[in-house]
Design a binder for these strands. Structure first.
Length: 422
RNA sequence: GGAGGGAUGGCCGAGCGGCCGAAGGCGCCUGUCUUGAAAACAGGUAUAGGGAAACCUAUCGUGGGUUCGAAUCCCACUUCCUCCGCCA
């Protein structure tokens, strides 16, 4: 959510930013009109309240019954007037809030302008695409052949876009989770295990609601929303809090399953385990001061990249264009790993500086050490990494001619002595 | 699921429908004193919105209601605690 004062003062700049995202800019004009209406009403209703407060105090001290009665009836009328104005103000504020909640974040100045993900800019590529002296297989052939990945069972249990990992496959994923969490702890993150279902207000705070309700699973009998990413509870955990400056930056990491309806992308990526309704992810998250956010974004990209490096995967870092930038993001890098079987760069991580966009929705501030006024923190989030695609990359990169899969060096301690899955 | 008791500032804790944005204490900040510190003493110390400013408005878990006026009365909800039941 953007600051209404900022919009008021920098209307043209905000419009330009919307235009970069290929959005209509009319909403800014209506927001400014609503804001003016709102301030008019506040001026009016608050002066009336001031009068009522003053007269009510007088009434409390008055002895003369008649003039007392006349004041009371005058205040009764004023009270009705105030109630009507309050009602009107409430309506205007709700409209303003809804309008503001629908405006995306301002892209950072160095975000390339583009239409979609094709305009994302490759910043660097690390490693060479692996070459084999045989024809590499895709994971959807490798996995079932080894008996570690079962698409039919997933469909039987839950339908399309579900699969079952078993044996060394399930264990490999668990090893990745353990190893990633340990790595992030070494990198200075604190591990959290949050609820995987949250209240509606938490979904709103992190920016998923109201806009993306269609992509979420929701229990209609209780106020429970299944998290689409650990970013949601990791934002919510500090909702409404004031953090001491000395505590910043706060680095958090969490493993959760993620649940997504993926309604928008029906028909895309249907094959394999690339895109499912349920997937596991290890997430990194930061609360920091605004002036450090840019540096912390770079740090987080480096932390995620380290994960790919230690796994021995070829990867590239991309800067998202304005056409691909998600609703709440100020600036986002993607990390993609090369999957030689399905011949694809797979997005395993998306690392974003959200600025104060979420903090404003979630009301998360910090208290500067010098005692000056409270400030909104900045928040950052990034996958470290998404498990299914990491699994794909590991399976396809570490495959051997006979269809077996070598366990990456860093995962061996977690595999109970299994060095090759066969 | 049933019964009962709570929720007040950074923390603890008072609070009769009006003089309560809220006593008192602790903590913190500033000053006096001191070579320095401690102690003592004095003053200050919530958040948000509006306003050029003076200042005004709102907030005592949340949302409604009663009233000229609500921390205080009424209703609903959230949450914590105690007891009973159920349960991995």
């Amino acid at each position: 959510m953007l600051d209404i004062k900022f919009i008021r003062e920098q209307a043209e700049f905000v419009k330009d930013s919307l235009a970069k995202r290929h959005m209509e800019t009319d909403v800014i004009d209506s927001v400014i009109a609503l804001d003016e209406k709102r301030r008019e009403l506040i001026l009016d209703v608050e002066s009336k309240k001031a009068e009522r407060n003053a007269v009510s105090k007088e009434i409390g001290r008055m002895k003369d019954k008649e003039s007392r009665e006349s004041k009371i009836s005058a205040m009764r009328n004023l009270g009705d007037n105030i109630a009507a104005l309050d009602e009107e103000l409430k309506t205007v504020e709700a409209e303003l809030f809804d309008a503001l909640a629908g405006i995306p974040n301002i892209p950072d100045a160095d975000v390339p302008i583009g239409l979609d993900d094709k305009d994302n800019v490759v910043i660097r590529t690390v490693g060479e695409k692996i070459s084999f002296d045989f024809e590499p297989k895709a994971h959807w052939d490798l996995g079932p052949a080894l008996g570690i990945l079962d698409f039919d069972a997933g469909v039987k249990l839950a339908g399309t876009r579900f699969y079952v990992l078993e044996g060394a496959g399930a264990r490999l994923q668990r090893a990745l989770i353990f190893w990633m969490l340990d790595l992030h702890i070494r990198q200075g993150y604190r591990e959290f295990y949050p609820p995987w279902m949250v209240r509606e207000e938490v979904m709103f705070a992190s920016g998923q609601l109201p806009k993306f309700a269609d992509n979420l699973y929701h229990d209609h009998q209780e106020d429970f929303w299944w998290v689409p990413t650990a970013e949601v509870p990791l934002t919510g955990i500090m909702m409404g809090e004031v953090i001491e400056e000395a505590e910043l930056p706060m680095n958090l990491t969490s493993y959760t399953a993620c649940f997504r309806r993926e309604k928008m992308s029906a028909g895309r990526d249907v094959r394999g385990m690339k895109r499912g309704h349920q997937f596991d992810k290890v997430e990194m998250y930061k609360y920091c001061k605004p002036e450090n956010a840019s540096q912390e974004l770079d740090n987080m990209v480096a932390d995620a990249a380290k994960t790919c490096e230690e796994l021995g995967l070829t990867y590239r870092v991309l800067l998202q264009s304005t056409g691909d930038l998600s609703f709440g993001s100020h600036k986002t890098y993607d990390i993609e790993v090369w999957a030689p079987g399905c011949q694809e760069w797979l997005e395993v991580s998306s690392i974003s500086n959200i600025g104060q966009f979420q903090a404003r929705r979630a009301n998360i501030k910090y208290r500067p050490a010098d005692g000056s006024a409270l400030q909104f923190v900045n928040t950052l989030n990034g996958s470290g990494l998404g498990l299914p695609r990491t699994m794909i990359a590991v399976m396809e990169n570490y495959q051997q001619a006979d269809g077996s899969i070598v366990v990456p060096e860093v995962l061996k301690p977690f595999m109970g002595g299994i060095e090759v899955i066969r």
